[in-house]
Amino acid sequence: MNLPEIPQVTIVVVPRERFSYTQESLTSVYKHTTYPFKLIYVDVNSPAHIRDYLAEQAKQKQFQLIRTEKYLSPNCARNIGLREVTSKYVVFLDNDVVLTPGWLEALVECAETTGATVVSPLTCQGTPVHAEVHCAGGETGVKVEIKGETTRRKIVEKIYLQGKRVEDVQPQLKREETGLAEFHCVLVRTEIFQQIGLLDEKLLSTKEHVDLCMLVTAAGGTIYLEPESIVTYVPGPPLEWTDLHYYMLRWSDRWEFSSLKHLLEKWNLSEDEYFQNRYKRLGSRRHMTIVHPFARKFPVGHFGFRVVSKILRLLDRVLNRWITTW
């Protein structure tokens, strides 16, 4: 591929849920990206040591650093970066993602060859990195069901091959049109935002990718999977105390419930079992990553663990409501 003299790609990095993986992720960008790019880093009130690290790196590497002194949702942060983008393509990248050599060349080559509006890499999850699939494309949309005089509009969301080992599925993967891409890492043709507008900031913590994919499809755009580009997002509990407040806000009951309600109303969806199950699971991410690991520290046996977990979940809900009023 001939490399352009002026970067055709702007990478916009935003926090996903924590700050403690910032250095590993940013190091990966500069280590594995040889295709010309501009970088815009949106720092949403990171703790002092991360703030200082980013300021130093911005000076050394000459990237654009935009900092806010308050926490923002990912889509709000993405829009701050997006407003600064003048290149043909924008890549949205979360701050807990590590990359592989050639990742960006493969995404751009796919977009140039196919005319794709959105291109997703093969996105992996966890450690060891690049070993387990998180998303290899999928489906999004609205399914209309008519029974007698009743019409139901049901959300469609399906992720392909999640949890499969990369080495087991890689031989069958190929570049192809798909219906789903996620914001961990995604390349988007910038001009599409002239049709669909900026990212929806009322989607605070969940289903932002579903909304984007449905908007792109409705506007006549296409979404492709490019498995030659491999990235990994590294989820985890908040590793430092300075992660905790943002993590609790990012996965707060209020943010998630508000996001689901907005998605429901925006796309005129039926409040069916999909939404009812999501309402019941509010706080489940905090429970898995914070409450349950903490409860296991108590030597109380299996029954005691269940009791302690229940008490901690009640405390978590109270604490979470308090935190989200800050």
Rank of each mutant, 00 (worst) to 15 (best):
N75F: 15
V98K: 03
A111G: 05
A77P: 06
V118I: 09
L107M: 08
V91T: 12
C110P: 01
V85P: 07
A77E: 13
L122K: 04
P74A: 03
A116Q: 02
P101F: 14
C110N: 00
E84D: 15
R83P: 06
L104N: 12
E112N: 13
L99V: 09
D96S: 11
K88Q: 15
R78C: 11
T123H: 11
C76Y: 08
C124R: 04
F92P: 00
N79W: 08
L122T: 08
L82A: 03
I80C: 10
I80T: 06
Q125T: 15
V129G: 02
L99I: 12
S87H: 13
G115M: 00
D96G: 14
V118N: 00
V108D: 02
H130F: 08
V91H: 01
L107N: 00
C76K: 09
S87P: 10
V108A: 06
V119D: 02
N75S: 10
L72Q: 07
T123Q: 05
R83M: 11
V98M: 04
R78T: 11
A131Q: 06
T113P: 02
C76D: 09
L93W: 10
L93P: 08
P121D: 11
A116N: 00
K88R: 15
T114A: 02
D96E: 07
V90K: 12
P128M: 11
G102E: 03
V118G: 01
Y89I: 02
D96R: 08
D94Q: 14
Y89P: 01
S73V: 08
V129S: 07
R78Q: 07
A77T: 11
T114E: 02
V98I: 14
S120L: 11
E109G: 15
T86Q: 12
A116T: 01
